[in-house]
Design a protein around this nucleic acid. Structure first.
Length: 206
DNA sequence: CCCGTGATTTAT
DNA sequence: TAAATCACGGGG
């Protein structure tokens, strides 16, 4: 039985949390059944100083309120009229930092995920993007503000005690934030190296 | 490449 | 009140 990640895991800076989440297991209990996948891709959002973050410059609105909660809270929002994105709030209360979970390798409940993802042709299409994984695991706005240290239906299990070694992680700029000027190019996206379930084809590593 | 789709935010 | 924007995905 895997241990759930404790509060202290989340109450750290988003880069450390983004790296530390790689290889851990996201679990959603859907109608009593476990849907789970290994986290293979994340992005760090650095709060009030980060032009790409929803909380840039201290912005605080009904939508992003969850980011001001304690580390371990879920921040789920709806975008482009179609899609949900799932974030892990980190740091301490009132410091609005977060990690976007961008891709999973499906492990449990794969048949249910396939049903939720009619458009997916291959197993690598099931959870290889932030909105895809929300559709596969049936994560919607009703999970916004969920405390993942306590919740029975959405939480993260520890599959490894230490973060993956740096040399097995590829670091790149974040996806889809070209508007963020000097923040657009910062190396804040973390992917398990050459992983087939990442949101885009793995960078070939010599 | 292009476009759907609608909540949210920002500007009037 | 209106317009613009958007942590995306699917189909050409």
């Amino acid at each position: 039985m895997n241990l759930r990640l404790p509060r202290g895991f989340y109450r750290r800076d988003p880069v450390t949390v983004a790296r530390g989440l790689l290889g851990q297991q996201l679990v959603r209990v859907f109608k009593g059944q476990r849907l789970a996948g290994i986290i293979v891709e994340t992005e760090a959002y650095l709060g009030v100083i980060d032009r790409a973050a929803h909380t840039f410059n201290g912005r605080r609105t009904p939508r992003n309120e969850a980011m001001y909660a304690d580390g371990g809270t879920a921040y789920v929002y709806f975008t482009y009229g179609l899609h949900h994105c799932f974030n892990v709030v980190c740091g301490k209360i009132n410091n609005p930092l977060a990690v976007l979970v961008r891709a999973l390798e499906p492990v449990e409940g794969i048949d249910v995920m396939k049903r939720h993802r009619r458009a997916a042709k291959r197993r690598t299409d099931l959870c290889s993007g932030p909105a895809k994984l929300c559709e596969a695991l049936a994560i919607d706005r009703s999970f916004n503000t969920t405390d993942m240290v306590e919740s029975k239906t959405l939480f993260i299990e520890q599959t490894r005690a230490r973060s993956l070694p740096a040399k097995s992680i590829t670091v790149t700029p974040r996806i889809g934030i070209g508007y963020a000027r000097e923040w657009a190019d910062k190396p804040l996206r973390f992917v398990i190296i050459n992983h087939p379930h990442a949101s885009r084809p793995p960078v070939k590593h010599p």
